[in-house]
């Protein structure tokens, strides 16, 4: 489960250059087509800003978010693509009691629906709020972006990356980081000097380049420490605590019971010896 032994640099990684995104939403359509996801009924401005659907759901694994801003007195749009970040050390995989989420050796974090018990801990744990639930069903499962695992297994690129005319580059994490750094260096005025996803949540298989500062675009500020380590620092103590607690209490009760037993035996001895003597005395008297 832990990806510590995996070679992260070879993981298939998206480099999403939001400065090149035109907001065509071809990725959204391609995602729906490949994953056979139901269309959602949408109306304008039902959520924040221009984006639609208003939120990621069980039917929407990715969507383009819109941000208005002013440049040289003119209204401009900035876009960014919301999707599963496919963390190097995924929180969802670490908290899942049955190991339904796995970081695949290729890169995508994949979900084994046949294992899932539907506890929704992954939804609590994900720092990016990605896993969604089939709320309409009586026996729901979790849904999220698969990183098009079925496609990359066949040597294809993910549906959204294939459909994107401008912004998505797809390749090994090592190469994508190199490419991102090259762009940041070559066009410093075009880019905000950060690669979102390089360090976030311990590193992810999605890397973003932006023009605006990250928080202005709506990127969540996320810890750079891998999330599983937060719970593991407590959970790793479990066997030790169990043995200490069990051993300590056993010793304590053994000690206390021994004291009690010795006291009882003394009492028993004295009380049982006495009547015999009395009998003898009685005999003597007779």
């Amino acid at each position: 489960m832990s990806s510590a032994d995996m070679d992260v640099t070879k993981h298939k990684t998206f480099l999403i250059d939001t400065t090149k995104c035109t907001g065509c939403r071809g990725c959204q359509v391609a995602c729906k087509q490949w994953n056979q996801l139901k269309a959602e009924k949408t109306v304008f401005f039902s959520g924040e800003g221009y984006q639609n659907p208003p939120a990621m759901t069980e039917h929407t694994f990715t969507r383009i978010k819109f941000r208005d801003y002013e440049k040289n007195g003119q209204n401009e749009f900035a876009f960014y693509k919301e999707m599963c970040m496919h963390c190097n050390e995924p929180a969802c995989a670490s908290v899942c009691p049955v190991g339904a989420f796995v970081k695949s050796p290729e890169g995508p974090v994949i979900y084994n629906a046949s294992r899932c018990i539907g506890c929704r801990f992954c939804m609590i744990a994900c720092p990016f709020g990605i896993p969604k639930y089939e709320w309409s069903k009586a026996f729901p499962l979790v849904k999220k972006c698969t990183g098009c695992y079925s496609r990359i297994k066949e040597g294809l690129e993910p549906a959204c990356a294939t459909a994107c005319p401008t912004a998505i580059t797809y390749g090994s994490r090592e190469e994508m980081i190199k490419e991102a750094e090259r762009r940041l260096k070559n066009r410093p005025q075009r880019y905000f000097q950060a690669i979102y996803g390089k360090e976030e949540a311990g590193g992810t298989s999605i890397l973003y380049l932006t023009h605006q500062p990250l928080d202005e675009l709506g990127f969540k500020k996320v810890t750079t420490r891998p999330l599983p380590s937060y719970t593991w620092q407590a959970l790793r103590l479990v066997p030790g605590i169990f043995l200490t607690m069990g051993g300590g209490l056993s010793l304590l009760s053994w000690f206390n019971h021994r004291k009690e037993r010795i006291r009882q035996e003394e009492g028993f001895k004295n009380s049982k010896v006495q009547p015999e003597k009395k009998d003898e005395m009685k005999g003597d008297n007779q």
């Binding site: 489960m1 832990s2 670490s94 908290v95 899942c96 009691p97 049955v98 190991g99 339904a100 294992r115 899932c116 018990i117 539907g118 506890c119 929704r120 801990f121 639930y133 089939e134 069903k137 026996f139 729901p140 499962l141 979790v142 599983p228 719970t231 593991w232 959970l235």
Partner: peptide, 17 residues
């Protein structure tokens, strides 16, 4: 969501959870 699979926890261990 899937109470009938409650026994999965006993079979598919994930000690990190």
């Amino acid at each position: 969501g899937q109470p009938q699979r409650g026994w999965h926890t006993m079979v598919y261990w994930n000690v990190h959870s």
